[in-house]
Amino acid sequence: MALLEVTDLVTRFRTDDGIVQAVSGVSFSLDRGQTLGVVGESGSGKSVTFLTVMGLVDPRHADVTGSVRFDGNELLGASFSTLRKIRGQRIGMIFQDPMTSLNPVKRIGWQLEEAVLIHNDVSRSEARRRSLEVLDEVEIPRADARIDDYPHQFSGGMRQRVMIAMALINQPDLLIADEPTTALDVTTQAQILRLMKKLQDEHGTAIVMITHDLGVVAELADDAAVMYGGRIVEEAKVQDLFAQPEMPYTWGLLGSLPRADITAARLEQIPGQPPSLLRPPNGCAFNPRCAYAFDRCRAELPELRPSPTSGEHRFRCHLDDADRLRIWTAKKAELTSTEGTAA
């Protein structure tokens, strides 16, 4: 049984301008100990999908349908007390901005202990012992001296380590990381990713890595899901996705990724803006920005269908197999060519 199984998840927000459908029928599953990389631009629905999974969207503004089964239990419509027991205990979550994600007026020791005390009937000194332990584990130097510091006394990278420590302190089965490295500088990013990988190896935690950085997915994930306009547009094993992406948006993402092993003439960009979720385009959400769009793309939403090579690799595109193969082969050649790049 999958640890997390999401089926036909739809999240709509009621706003003053109308209904914003942030997530439109997302389905995926994640096994224990596995890592799923979720890639997409801002507004693709990736964060909202997992805030919905955690029950963190405000029910006063949001309508949610579909199903979220965690370890066999349905979370959608579950009582607040059921959700509360799962949050922080069985599912840990870390967020994009470590500068604002910790309470500025509480010592980090207090905040770590709180995570323990909410879910375990232990003494404060026991909670403190565990906090120290987990701070050591996330490699914060001199943890015993720093446990009584306030968040503002830590650097961004150190705060993200504290966030990771806090999310993992109760040894959850699943860690949802919402762009955990986006706000950090590049060397710190690499350290944090290495740390997450190490902790996953030690504890067997499943990870959902939400990111807009395909490099992070390549580094950490087993499976990848590309999201666009509130839908999954392509999903595959990571190596398959990088070897043979099947639809134009993923091509664009790969083309815009700087790679050390390839000397590209220039990085490609995907023209245009992400679609408005308030008034999404007809047909395929990517069609206004797609160089290969034809009439059918503007009329009919492509279904998620398996690729010719693997049943696990699925994508949304109306282009037929021959066209896609031809375009990707040409594109790949272009991306890897070194001609005219003497500079």
Partner: peptide, 26 residues
């Protein structure tokens, strides 16, 4: 609507704890 309140919710804090420890003082 602060991020750290969302963090506290993700930790499993109940409404009362959220209000008293994370919202009021700030």
């Amino acid at each position: 609507s602060e991020d750290y309140v969302r963090t506290a919710k993700a930790k499993g804090a109940g409404s009362m704890r959220l209000l008293v420890h994370h919202v009021l003082r700030n």
